[in-house]
Design a protein around this nucleic acid. Structure first.
Lengths: 189, 189
DNA sequence: CTTTTGACCGACCGAACGTTCTGTTACCCT
DNA sequence: AGGGTAACAGAACGTTCGGTCGGTCAAAAG
């Protein structure tokens, strides 16, 4: 076996979860194959059974998964049947739980550095642009003019990621939670 | 020579600038000795003349320098003789120029990851805590109650780092500049 | 009972890693 | 002129890197 003290992941989802945690913690360059093997409970060679493209494919798959998840769990709430202010509140809550209420950095942001930025930076950029537009459109529904709605969308995203960054540097997730509560309170009603 | 197409750095400050750029761009694990050597115009072995402790010492020295700079150029403005609102505005401007108006990530934040987090995370945490208190004290001087001043300080720092993160992911420094302008406008007068 | 297949891994590979050894210059000091 | 030293680099060190190879083993398929 690849590891003595950890049971192997018993499902594809569990395997990806464990790999994602390594990438989040150490970044792409710091996530070595031996670390990934240990964390997954598999041998290095076995990882190539699941990801023939090696480390690059793992990162790519995990990034795609993270984007899909953030889209499905958070941004998709912006296009539901509730009134716009409710949708915005739900979105903030969903984003918060996506980053584990401030405990975990965002994998998308983590992978947008170093060697991977050249590969996936554009995908990430486009995605955030589209998300920003969706967010702005929702703010418009609350009665804001396009210009102001754009500002509100930009401020909200920056507020979310900023509070996440501060919570990480101060090693205090409650800081993110308080910041998020404030962001919600300032939402249009 | 360690390099063919780049002139060697001609001063200690210039050397550190070039090394810092590599750490900012690639992170600690991604900043390989050969990259550092190439960027500095020195041979790998020569870097050990200036930093006997190797890569770890480079990062440590550069981190200390970044903290000192941010303190001196930005946070020190909070304890000058001008009225508090003016000091806050100056602080935001100074922070903005510290990160090259949104073009460059903050080295302190970049080095607070992976292997280096265990080594320097606590130093960084304490520093940001102290900076947050200084910022809150200045907000208090504008008439805010302690509780609200703390919130304002936290929101301002989060806003700064959040806009920086968004500017990076969207690859658009003007986004940081607009966000910063808004943060200044919302400052107490 | 055989064959095939999917999951797995120990052992290995060349390359790159961070680091050190052994110098060679070039400049200062007396 | 001679001795010391700061600044540098070529070449090699042992280690770890991402990645490959040949194979085992259990269970499904025939």
């Amino acid at each position: 076996m690849g590891n003595n003290d950890k049971p192997a992941a018993n499902s594809r989802a569990e395997l990806e979860n464990r790999l994602a945690r390594v990438f989040i913690e150490h970044g792409y360059e710091g996530a070595s194959l031996s670390r990934l093997a240990t964390a997954s409970g598999l041998g290095k060679a076995s990882l190539y059974h699941h990801f023939p493209g090696g480390k690059a494919e793992m990162a790519s798959v995990l990034l795609t998964r993270a984007i899909a998840r953030l889209d499905k769990t958070a941004f998709s709430r912006l296009t539901k049947k509730q009134p716009a202010p409710v949708r915005l509140g739900r979105f903030v809550d969903a984003f918060s739980s996506y980053v584990d209420h401030g405990e975990r950095p965002c994998l998308i942001a983590v992978l947008d550095h170093g060697a991977l930025r050249a590969v996936h930076g554009d995908t990430i950029r486009r995605r955030f642009l589209s998300w920003g537009e969706r967010l702005a459109a929702t703010f418009e529904e609350t009665g804001m003019k396009p210009r102001r709605a754009r500002r509100a969308a930009s401020d909200l995203l920056a507020g979310l990621y900023g509070n996440l960054a501060m919570a990480r540097m101060l090693d205090d997730a409650s800081l993110f939670q308080r910041g998020t509560r404030r962001l919600k309170k300032d939402l249009p009603s």
